[in-house]
Nucleic acid binder design. Sequence first.
DNA 1: CTAGGAAGAACAATCGATTGCGCCCCCAAA
DNA 2: TTTGGGGGCGCAATCGATTGTTCTTCCTAG
Lengths: 356, 356
Amino acid sequence: MPDRPLKPITLKELAALLELSQSTVSRIVNGEASAHRIAQETQERVLRAAAEHGYRANAVARSLRQKRTYTIGAIVPEISEGYSTAVLSGIEDEVLKEGFFYFVVSHRHRPDLLKGHLHMMLSRSVEGIVAIDTPIEEALPVPLVSVSGHNRREGVINIELDHAQAACLALTHLKSLGHKRIAYIKGQAISSDTNQRWHAITEEAGKLGMAIDAELVVQLESPEPGPGPGFEVTRQLLQRGRSFTAIFAFNDLTATGAIQALREAGLRVPRDVSVVGFDDVLIARTNNPPLTTVHQPLRSMGQTAAETLLSLIRDELPRPYPAVITMNPKLIVRKSTAHPPSAHPTDGTVTRPRGA
Amino acid sequence: MPDRPLKPITLKELAALLELSQSTVSRIVNGEASAHRIAQETQERVLRAAAEHGYRANAVARSLRQKRTYTIGAIVPEISEGYSTAVLSGIEDEVLKEGFFYFVVSHRHRPDLLKGHLHMMLSRSVEGIVAIDTPIEEALPVPLVSVSGHNRREGVINIELDHAQAACLALTHLKSLGHKRIAYIKGQAISSDTNQRWHAITEEAGKLGMAIDAELVVQLESPEPGPGPGFEVTRQLLQRGRSFTAIFAFNDLTATGAIQALREAGLRVPRDVSVVGFDDVLIARTNNPPLTTVHQPLRSMGQTAAETLLSLIRDELPRPYPAVITMNPKLIVRKSTAHPPSAHPTDGTVTRPRGA
DNA sequence: CTAGGAAGAACAATCGATTGCGCCCCCAAA
DNA sequence: TTTGGGGGCGCAATCGATTGTTCTTCCTAG
């Protein structure tokens, strides 16, 4: 009987059973016995009974009293999407380890949902929030850590990739292969990484003495996840008829879309056109061809975000707080990049993309 | 001043401000005013003040009193993985709409984590649990809905794909193309869909009069997500030297791994070998070649799971409860399947895979 | 013989909202 | 002048745990 978990026993009942006060029982089960000089024997008696009856403190009641919920909120654009979930898995690691739980809400790029869900979380007394790829304008009553959100607001800590380094890695790679006419696919305007990344690219391209041809720059439009948008804009790009030997895509999914479009136009990757992705999601490795891409340590970013948030919650983070914590990208060279056709010593058959 | 959300106002404070009792204010903000014959004017006064001060009921306190948390738990093998997250997004849809929140925990196939997290959720008083691809043995104090978990336990409702239909669709497709020697990649033993699926396949193959050659059956070993395991076992399969003209893979990621292995062995897909995937995740469409696959309505399954769980929680589900709710698969024919080489009227060059 | 202190545990307030009852007032009918 | 019945709200318990304070005992040292 006592081991059926179906109707949990409360502290009060347990105390009554033991003929002790709730305070004493509470102190013992919370390991504060010695701080309260409670007899060894009593402790054992209580712990034994607690185990027997499967006593587990009601977290709701505890939260009310302590004004702590040991819960944080995560807000993402879309849960069914690799980027966010990779970060989430890092968050989960950290957070569960510390006895916290987390809520997830996705806003699907709708400001009303964003605001609504945010407030729901707050009225559930989350102790902190991590926003992934989502800028938050409001001032919040709890700490906020932002992953790729580019919230330049007082008190918000941003976890970000070192975009300059990322751009440098990719561009240097392309440059060293001999590419000069490089096309760029910028991210959707709604993605908060878009501007940072683009800025870094122009900056680094400048430093490397690589001119950017405005005719070779396209931007993703459709907010739809997946490779579709990349496919579309690459078609548009090809229609412009401007020649190029490489594409630097906003992310891996876009890159795969681009590759499809190139193929449809009769171009081979990487022989005719090299493609560089971004993120290094799972499929990058298994795409055909495997994608050369800039690896973004998403899981670590999640972990770092969670760690940071937790220390903020505990008020253990030394001040002044950093505004940004940058993480290092890595270039993963696979098979989607090669020398440009003109630089192929033994092969000059296809020298430029054919416009559609 | 009153509009700074930084220190939320409580019911008591608001009541004091209005010189009313907490009961009255509570009733009004909860829309139970008319049931308690409260003056129209008072109602307006209260609502106005509540809005001005941004009053939001503390969900923790409410939960304690009502013994309801409006929270459910979702337990998944791995959060950074397309299958689970597709289901999760369906769950989120349903659940947020109804004012519920959800916790997510992943167990990474570790029984200790599974058990630990499960209990943590319970002591946080979740009102129900949906387990995704995860069998739960324990009896729980709250309703449990299982998605592809194959929990044949009293009181557990399972949301499952109609595997018989799925197998039938895929096999009929292959048969009608003329395939006779079909290889099968079974799922990992840890995946709860594995057995069901395999059982359905043998069953349907029998009905269709298609013999299954045990030499052409391999099973995924490595629990690693992604295409790696599929790649490995396909290599092994090729080494057996037994000829086949099609592969039916356990899932899309496995299929992509298989395709890679086939390519490495000099085989073309679908010209030499056709490949059928399962799930229809995002990349299926953009893979090269785009994957013919059995579409599994993951998001709907999530929605159905959530709907079912919520009505179970509300005790609104008519009895007797169904043990299983099956969902219908759809065959999506793309480019990874074609006639087998021997059936190619105009091309007989490659008649069987070359062993490695 | 008694003050002082340690040991051991109980009391009771508290967290913020919800909710079953009960109370008061006013007006109309008897 | 009662009685009765709404209308309009307030009282106070309650949910389950935590925690500052208080209260006994029992010893021991002076």
